[in-house]
Amino acid sequence: MAEKLLDVKNLKTSFYTHVGEVQAVRGVSFSLNKGEALGIVGESGSGKSVTSMSIMKLLQFPGKIKDGEILFKGEDLVKKSEKHMMSIRGNEIAMIFQDPMTSLNPVYTVGDQIMEAIIRHQGLSKQKAKKKAIEMLKLVGIPSPEKRVDNYPHEFSGGMRQRAMIAIALSCQPDLLIADEPTTALDVTIQAQILELMKDLKEKINTSIILITHDLGVVADVCSRIIVMYGGLVMEEGTAEEIFYDPKHPYTMGLLKSIPRLDLGQKKRLVPIEGSPPDLLKPPKGCPFAARCPYAMRICVEERPPYFYVNEGHRSMCWLLHEDAPDVKVETGVKRGIA
């Protein structure tokens, strides 16, 4: 067994708003090995970003971790003081965000913003930090980094800004990089470049990655293991192979069916998942997906299903896997060898 870097156990995070407790994450468990890339997939409001912000302990008021453990290198981050977290953030766990256009401070140079993390965590002098910043910019593929280091963010294009964000995140060789929708705001050609860069740097710097996205194509490209989240819960977990070619949860199947594909031609329409996600202010008692699930049974509404294990690494929270459940065969249309 490979060494575990991160082990999230039964994480529950809620937002205590004036209308009540919004249970954004309702008991999420997963683990990540050293050097592994894990994808977290789900639609808006499924709790994937809140999970990542919980790991960073950067939840905005009124969000709070209610229960659970986040073991990072064997130590529970939930119990760590804010001061201790500051020495971990940007140093051992780094993060890049969705919108590179707004994620960099417009009034400081790009170099300044890279140097900041280096000076903070590695205690380098300003000159050395600047040298390192230039190195990082070169590493992420910014042309003539010696000049670009003194540019302001508005002088960078969107793709370059995301590269700069990656440079900031990786400047202290973190053990874990959390990328929250890193390509969503970029156009398609740039998306591919950024993903290539991330894959490449993952090897070079030996960083583990958690890639959060709603784009199944993106995870397929980068991640070896995938978690599918819905309604604040992990619906299904498996290797990329298992999730794409042998999905066990109707929600995963629904997601796969709704990917636009060229090979279907113009006649076939995309199959959306009907309905809308559950209100986490009053989360349903049973399976959160039951209301939208075409195969829902009575028990699905009444009781939340446990995890059924297909094999050691492949689990699904669905009553259909119970031995008494009817056999459901679904054709998602995802075939090997077709992009």
């Binding site: 950067l58 940007g90 965000f97 964000m165």
Partner: peptide
């Protein structure tokens, strides 16, 4: 509320 403040916090700045 801006994203770059979140970035700054994520860098571990005080």
């Amino acid at each position: 509320q801006q994203d770059y403040i979140r970035t700054a916090r994520a860098k571990g700045l005080s």
